[in-house]
Design a protein around this nucleic acid. Sequence first.
DNA 1: AGTGTTGGTCACAAATTGATACCACCCTAT
DNA 2: ATAGGGTGGTATCAATTTGTGACCAACACT
Lengths: 125, 125
Amino acid sequence: MTLSNMDFPTPSKDADCRVVREILDRIADKWSLYIFVALRDGPVRFNELRRQIDGISQRMLTITLRQLERDGLISRTLFPTIPPRVDYELTAVGRTLLAPVMALVIWADSNRDVIEEARQRYDAS
Amino acid sequence: MTLSNMDFPTPSKDADCRVVREILDRIADKWSLYIFVALRDGPVRFNELRRQIDGISQRMLTITLRQLERDGLISRTLFPTIPPRVDYELTAVGRTLLAPVMALVIWADSNRDVIEEARQRYDAS
DNA sequence: AGTGTTGGTCACAAATTGATACCACCCTAT
DNA sequence: ATAGGGTGGTATCAATTTGTGACCAACACT
């Protein structure tokens, strides 16, 4: 009970907490992070995203992009050419999320050796 | 091709890239983030974690804690009392990850209204 | 005429996660 | 004495999520 009211910053209401959870679950899902990284330098088309994000299926790319669009973090622009062209781009709000996301990516990159060693130690014992 | 070599910071080798992906996948999975937040003020026992992290199953808590322990981000201390007591705590490395993680949490908290509105706009159209 | 590109959707299979039961051990209240 | 609860798990099976491959229309290139 001592910490249950302090789990998250200013959880004045349960509803707020639930929304924060929903947002974090979206950011921290399997693919959103990589979409953010791929979009950090400007608009990218659908199939270019698919090529950049290794292992993502067309299905999950579509679904994840739709969810991020719904949250107002990325925008979708359809150019009705033949063949069609669809650009995805970070919105102003989305760009403010880029700093924390890149901080995570940079942390992961800086600590890969440390973590690799920890894994080998754990697996050896 | 222009960006494929710059997807992540200093991706000097494919192997490095793969490790960074593995680390990010661990951090950004469904529960790790919340375990980090719960452990930010010091050691917490297993069942206290379970109570703090709403919705997590005992199974996923065990599995996620093991993975984080394997990566050297948290430590597990067993006190052989009756009933047994197991403390989980962030390691020194784990604590360095706390800053980027909390930046994400704070971002999510600060932007919940903006995102809620974006969702309503999207769902209405 | 065949092959490839675009950005999707759909149905089904595979992988991941959740729910429930169970375990040994003790403490407390009845 | 016995029923119920807490400790930190594991095992099994169901439910949910994700991946796989096929298919689409409209064109360009060969």
